[in-house]
């Protein structure tokens, strides 16, 4: 554990909490892609299958459980409790376009052709593109509430901080993971356009609005 990795985890946690609080306090999930949230829930389930077989630390286990519960809580709020506020007309990204390639790629490129390992690899590939339905939704409506922007910024920062963590681990521990690193770079690059808009608009108090 190093400071970059910890910051990444905290940014991830903050993102998840921002989203839950936004939905809970406004009693609405308008502007949020339920499809992205389903993909994140699937990602966590596939990755944390080792929760009971591979003990790392208390921190690790607790965070895994928190991420799982929070992602299921978010999906529950969107599809059950506040279903009426879910903007499904704008959430039209086809999930199979992301899930099927992630399955195929995880079967072909993995560290070891074993069940848990392939599920882990699938989760890495799926997570890297899981935000696309949300970004697609923002581009379709042409705008995002500031709270949604803060959520996306925290979520994007998480993988960017992990990249710094991987560089640190490579030099300090001689440890690297090509699959996680390449997928993490793809994931972070997907946020670049958003980061630019966030810094130039949202931080200056303006609403995130895409140029017409």
């Amino acid at each position: 554990m190093n400071v970059f990795r910890l910051s990444g985890d905290v940014a991830h946690l903050i993102a998840i909490i921002i989203l839950l609080l936004k939905i809970w306090t406004s009693r609405s999930c308008a502007g949020i892609s339920g499809k992205s949230q389903i993909l994140f829930a699937v990602t966590f389930v596939a990755r944390y299958l080792d929760l009971f077989t591979n003990y790392v630390s208390i921190y690790n286990s607790v965070m895994k459980i928190v991420y799982l519960l929070a992602s299921f809580g978010t999906v529950y709020l969107m599809y059950m409790k506040f279903k009426a506020t879910y903007d499904h007309n704008h959430d039209t990204f086809r999930l199979e376009f992301l899930i099927l390639p992630a399955i195929a790629l995880s079967l072909i490129i993995n560290h070891d052709f074993a069940v848990i390992e392939v599920f882990w690899t699938f989760s890495i590939y799926l997570e890297s593109v899981a935000i696309l339905p949300q970004l697609f939704m923002v581009s379709k409506t042409g705008e995002a509430e500031s709270i949604t922007s803060h959520y996306l910024f925290a979520l994007g920062s998480y993988r960017a901080l992990y990249i710094v963590n991987w560089i640190y681990r490579y030099y300090m521990e001689g440890f690297y993971d090509m699959i996680a690193t390449l997928a993490g770079i793809v994931q972070t690059v997907l946020y670049c356009d958003f980061f630019y808009l966030y810094i130039t608009k949202v931080l200056k108090g303006k609403k995130l609005q895409l140029p017409a």
């Binding site: 990795r5 985890d9 991830h12 080792d50 591979n54 790392v56 630390s57 690790n60 965070m63 895994k64 991420y67 560290h111 070891d112 390992e117 882990w120 992990y162 963590n165 991987w166 681990r169 440890f175 690297y176 993971d177 090509m178 996680a180």
Partner: peptide, 10 residues
């Protein structure tokens, strides 16, 4: 076997 995995990460 796996040498370069990061399964200790989240």
């Amino acid at each position: 076997s796996i040498k370069h995995n990061m399964h200790d990460e989240l």
